[in-house]
Simulated assay, not measured.
Amino acid sequence: MAQPPVIAVVGPTGSGKSDLAVSLALELDGEVINADSMQFYRGMDIGTAKITPAERRGVPHHLLDTLDVTQEASVSDFQQEARELISGIHARGKRAILAGGSGLYVRAALDVLEFPGTDPAVRRSLEGELEQAGPEALLARLRDVDPVSAGRVSDARRIIRALEVHQLTGRPFSSYMPQREYYQPTVQVGLSVDREALRERLALRVHRMVDQGLLAEVRRLDAAGLRSGKTAPRALGYAQFLRVLDGVATVAEATEDTIVATRQFARRQLTWFRADPRISWLDWQAPDLTAQAAAVCVNDAG
């Protein structure tokens, strides 16, 4: 028998993806696969708005709490793990439901996408050059070999990755960018938001996180090595509240900085997902949202 399409619930942070994924799973007999890269981390619960066991309502969830904060999240590892989970869920006769707003991770699971390898020695050499010559020198090199990537990247980590790929493969990093071609039949449901309402919701959510103990969570994770990780310490809220621990920001300042950064992130997510014409957009506040989404999942396949 043909496998049912993978379901993906996407949209900006704070739009209700986790809740809709659970409701769909209950409606369609499914299991949820997390595609929020910061929810991989054990202990990063309050600041990532990680769905609680009670909120999961008995629905199996996968790829939550799989990494320590000192470990680096890997899109290529996620791709392999997510696809294995999808196959296993479908083999059990269930529906696989991917939920999350980390755009590249969603694309890695759903689309035909090749990941070039890595080489620690090459990476260390480039990091040494970065320390000596600075990011502008490396960016100038990248412009020579891969002007497309040079126009897209801004931080040193991505510049190093693009140069590493070119050095290892002889191909520009930009040539590995995904095409809009599904790896297997897929239905994407996007949550269309009222932007002003979302702005207010995100501010309230950050204040709630602070009230729930975000600073104490960051302090515990700092003691567990948060700063030594390459991915986790850059997470929204955690980067800002580490500054409180360092005595260079107040809780009020870190709260406001987190609200601003979260709103900016939500705008970037909307831009990313709006660029994908395959997504079926539904009103995030529709009273029959689950029924609408279930109808899309039953009737459509990419």
Rank of each mutant, 00 (worst) to 15 (best):
A96D: 03
I97K: 07
I97D: 07
G100N: 10
Y105C: 04
Y105K: 04
V106G: 05
V106P: 09
V106N: 10
R107V: 02
A108K: 06
A109F: 11
L110S: 06
D111H: 14
V112E: 15
L113N: 13
E114R: 14
G117Y: 05
D119T: 09
D119P: 10
A121P: 07
V122R: 08
R123P: 08
R124A: 15
E127W: 12
E131G: 09
G134L: 03
A137E: 11
V145P: 02
V148P: 00
A150R: 05
G151T: 02
R152A: 12
R152S: 06
A156N: 03
A156V: 03
I159D: 00
I160R: 02
R161H: 08
R161D: 00
L163Q: 03
L163F: 02
Q167D: 09
L168K: 00
T169L: 01
G170V: 02
S175T: 14
M177P: 01
M177N: 12
Y182N: 12
Q184H: 13
P185M: 04
Q188N: 04
G190P: 11
V193M: 10
R195A: 15
E196I: 11
A197F: 02
R201C: 05
L202T: 06
V206K: 05
D211F: 05
D211P: 04
Q212D: 13
G213P: 00
E217Y: 06
E217G: 07
R220W: 09
D222S: 15
D222T: 15
A223K: 09
L226E: 10
R227L: 10
S228H: 12
S228V: 14
S228T: 15
G229W: 06
K230I: 14
K230M: 15
T231E: 06
R234N: 15
L236N: 14
L236D: 05
